[in-house]
Design a protein around this nucleic acid. Structure first.
Length: 265
DNA sequence: AACCAGGTCTCGA
DNA sequence: TCGAGACCTGGT
């Protein structure tokens, strides 16, 4: 399948999605409850899945105008350089429920631990779609097992996670409307939930709600912006600065900067 | 063994 | 609106 220019290693292991695993040269993941196996074959990608090519295309955002994105990002010389260094990075359009619940857990913990917490949740609440491979549970799967979340090693995130799942099962997570409304309003809605602050709201807006101007600022990005651009201040001020500097695709710029700033794993 | 991690919450100024 | 402290737990 032709997904356009894409580097699977960078795209699937850059911190936007936590559940893709590589074995040999094959990436395996679960999308919409279905197994997806990917391998690079020349310029194309070998895709093995029950999902339609339309669904796969949506997940990999093949509808994005990469030329326009490149033009916008290259106005900044630092990002232009990173775009060459990390050529083939693509943002994903993830499932809103899985993405938001995952980033709810991704607070004040390093990536290995975040992956472990999410995996634990999948094993305990999800469905085994293949040997040892589990789907991310739906809200109902989580609310159905009272107190089971306490055994997932989530720490103080446990109650937030359970509450968020309950909201989901009650149909009170209106992702479609958050996609439609402007970025600022979307974030304003998201931060009302316990456990979702400025940064997590931006991650959700960017990685699953199509708000490409969202610019999540974690500790690494914060340091990078200070070192390379001399920018400091409150989250909202720095965030505004970033959106003005990098434009309507600021989220892509953020991901390049994150790749260069994160500790080597 | 400390320090830190893709932060958020609460509270006081 | 902003900054300071506390905070589960595990990785390095």
């Amino acid at each position: 399948m032709d997904l356009g220019p894409i580097d699977l290693d960078i795209t699937l292991d850059c911190g936007q999605a936590f559940r893709w695993r590589k074995s040999g040269d094959v990436w395996t993941g679960v999308v919409k409850g279905e197994i997806v196996r990917l391998a690079k074959r020349g310029k194309a990608v070998d895709v093995e899945t029950e999902l339609s090519s339309r669904e796969i295309g949506s997940y990999f955002r093949i509808d994005d105008d990469l030329e326009d994105i490149g033009r916008q990002l290259d106005r900044d010389s630092i990002v232009r350089e990173l775009r060459e260094r990390f050529a083939g990075l693509r943002l994903l359009r993830q499932d809103p429920w899985e993405c938001s619940a995952s980033f709810l857990l991704a607070t004040n913990a390093n990536v290995p631990r975040i992956k472990k917490m999410i995996e634990s949740v999948c094993v305990r609440f999800g469905h085994e779609v293949a040997d040892g491979l589990y789907s991310f549970p739906m809200p109902e799967d989580i609310t159905a097992k009272e107190d089971a979340a306490e055994k997932c090693g989530l720490g103080y995130r446990c109650n937030r996670f359970s509450d968020f799942a309950r909201k989901g099962s009650e149909g009170r997570l209106d992702f479609e409307s958050w996609k439609t409304m402007p970025y600022e309003e979307c974030v304003k809605e998201l931060v009302r939930f316990d456990g979702i602050g400025d940064k997590v709201a931006d991650c959700i807006a960017l990685f699953c709600l199509d708000h490409l101007e969202a610019f999540p600022i974690d500790v690494h990005i914060g340091r990078t912006l200070e070192e390379r651009y001399g920018v400091t201040g409150s989250y909202r001020n720095v965030s505004r600065w970033a959106r003005e500097r990098f434009g309507r695709y600021a989220g892509y710029a953020q991901e390049y900067l994150y790749l260069s700033a994160r500790p080597r794993i």
